[in-house]
């Protein structure tokens, strides 16, 4: 490691050590564990700035935070899964002894022998670690893949196909009482007849033209080509709107982190 890098790291360590001391002093009298609280707020600020340092370029602070995140999140999800699924749902149905050990309520009526099957399948899954018997883990995997494929078949057919198609076929003439009535009551209110009809037309034609754009088995020429052209317009508006929506979401997260740094860490009420 270069000397300048070491000096820089030492400076960063000193800076955050000072921050810890000042934060602990600020928390004294307010928090019971003020030294720990000071450390945690300083740590959160350090990690926030470490991740932000990636904007400059990949660096040791970013890598440190990244690897820390991997370890912490893996253990977090494992612990949560263990307590909620294995201890919370499996043991009370399998063993009174294990339920008592983990202090979860054992209901004798809930005992079910069939819950040994996923445990066996789970153990078979761990056989993947064996060089010679790794192929046995495919049985458990086959169960998960088969069940999920069957579930997805129905789920996507219903929600992403049938429901979407049926929602597309909306009335194109909303509350139609003749052309005279339509023009005499023309207004731009959201609940008005014109705007509702416009929305339904855009939805119906938008979906049709969007699908035509993605249909590559026929050359996009003539009327088909024009419909495909309208489809790409609708898609461009969508991509723009989705882009704007995503930006707003990310900016709000950034505002949250900046607020944390200025208010919670530096104590500046701006």
């Amino acid at each position: 490691m270069k000397r300048t890098t070491l000096i820089l790291m030492a400076l960063v360590v000193i800076f955050f050590a000072l921050s810890w001391i000042f934060k602990a002093m600020a928390f004294k009298g307010v928090e019971e564990h003020y030294i720990l609280q000071g450390f945690l707020v300083t740590l959160a600020a350090f990690l926030t700035l470490s991740i932000m340092s990636f904007l400059y370029k990949d660096n040791p602070f970013y890598k440190f935070a990244e690897h820390l995140f991997v370890g912490i999140s893996a253990a977090f999800w494992m612990s949560m899964g263990f307590w909620s699924t294995i201890v919370g749902n499996l043991f009370p149905r399998l063993s009174e002894g294990m339920s008592n050990f983990f202090k979860v309520h054992y209901i004798p009526g809930d005992y079910n022998f069939f819950f040994y099957v996923p445990v066996i399948l789970g153990i078979l899954l761990l056989m993947r670690l064996s060089r010679n018997y790794g192929w046995i883990s495919r049985w458990s995997l086959a169960f998960i893949v088969g069940t999920t494929a069957g579930l997805n078949f129905i789920r996507y057919l219903r929600s992403d196909f049938i429901n979407q198609v049926s929602s597309t076929f909306v009335p194109l003439l909303v509350d139609w009482q003749g052309i005279g009535h339509f023009f005499s009551s023309l207004n731009l209110s959201a609940s008005g007849q014109f705007i509702m009809m416009l929305a339904n037309w855009v939805i119906f034609l938008g979906v049709m033209c969007g699908i035509i754009y993605f249909f590559f088995s026929k050359e996009h020429t003539g009327l088909f080509g024009r419909a495909s052209r309208v489809g790409i317009w609708i898609l461009m508006i969508t991509f723009g709107a989705s882009f704007g929506y995503t930006v707003m979401g990310r900016i709000s997260l950034l505002v949250g982190r900046i607020t944390f740094l200025f208010r919670d860490w530096l104590g500046l009420n701006i």
């Binding site: 416009l198 855009v202 938008g206 979906v207 969007g210 609708i234 898609l235 508006i237």
Partner: peptide, 12 residues
């Protein structure tokens, strides 16, 4: 409206 139309086409 337009966003939902295009998303619906993609979802299908």
């Amino acid at each position: 409206v337009p966003n939902m139309a295009a998303k619906r086409a993609i979802l299908i």
